[in-house]
Nucleic acid binder design. Structure first.
Lengths: 166, 166
DNA sequence: CGTAGAATTGCTACATTATAACCTAAGGTT
DNA sequence: AACCTTAGGTTATAATGTAGCAATTCTACG
């Protein structure tokens, strides 16, 4: 899936898969995927662009949910805790996790033009980590790796402010 | 210098060097290192821990400077622009650049215990970048690489909430 | 000089992002 | 039902960052 973020794809399958993953994970952990939490997850997965918490408020309101900041942040915290979404610090935004369930290190590449974020594979990140940890004698517990620039699609279409997918 | 962040060192030389670097860089660019800017740089270099913008306000006030947020942010922006400091997104904080003058990619390791941040060497970061860019076909323009965990010192002294240097 | 233009700073207000605190409601267990 | 735990509602506020405009300082050039 990670390799298709910058190419046309049936995004509906991304959403469906994300919800199925969430359901499974919650069941196995005895956590409750309540309506608000489920809806927030869907909204975060609307596309592959990082979404700000305050963008979600009106969308939740439209669906008849309560839409005060704490509601959204609590749902986001829940999803973060379970590893169903990630936070992109450099953008103060959130994005669906492409590898839920696995305990993994995270890294993102965010295209400056289309805004779509590609989650780098855990293996790749683990590689980088291991090398750094060994060379520097450090123990890495958390990481924020956020690269930005131009994705393969946008390198060829400079007008593509809205990229290859929905 | 980067290798001594987590070891005892005469931090005064860090500050002196940073100011000298700033002076040179400003002269060569025709930029003005005004009193506020210089003071903000000094304050950021007080230690190797990332500093929040709002922490600087009272310190500037104490020195008789204006201390409204725009003043600090403008000074910080100026220093960022010149590459004299970096911003740590995951902490909303700023830290002196260990490799000023060079056009370089940045990465940090921040110790969870002592809070000191080690700027990873440009060469190392360039390595990582080149590999990722080649493998993924992306063009990396900016990056936020922020690792946190335990530095070599703190791995051995769990009580060391205040690390090896000032 | 001295004055025009640019850069810098002062200042007020406000935008954005996030959390505290406290109460109510819902669900799960015995 | 009685209880307890978890989740959500609500209000207020904290923390971080910017917009916009007036006042000042610097610089360059005649």
């Amino acid at each position: 899936m990670t390799s298709t973020v910058y190419a046309p794809h049936d995004h509906h399958t991304c959403i469906t898969a994300a919800l199925a993953n969430a359901k499974n994970l919650c069941e196995s952990r005895g956590a409750r995927l309540t309506p608000v939490r489920k809806r927030v997850l869907e909204l975060v997965w609307q596309n592959h662009k990082p979404t700000g918490a305050y963008e979600l408020l009106p969308q939740l309101a439209q669906d008849g949910f309560n839409s005060a900041p704490p509601t959204v942040y609590r749902a986001l915290d829940f999803l973060l805790e379970l590893g169903l979404i990630h936070r992109i610090s450099s953008l103060n935004a959130f994005i669906g996790c492409a590898h839920p369930g696995q305990d993994h290190t995270t890294g993102f590449f965010i295209c400056r033009l289309c805004g779509n974020a590609l989650e780098l594979s855990p293996e790749r990140m683990q590689d980088v980590n291991t090398r750094l940890a060994e060379e520097l004698g450090i123990i890495i517990e958390e990481q924020t790796i956020e690269l930005s620039g131009l994705c393969p699609s946008c390198q060829h279409s400079t007008a593509a402010a809205n990229g290859a997918n929905a």
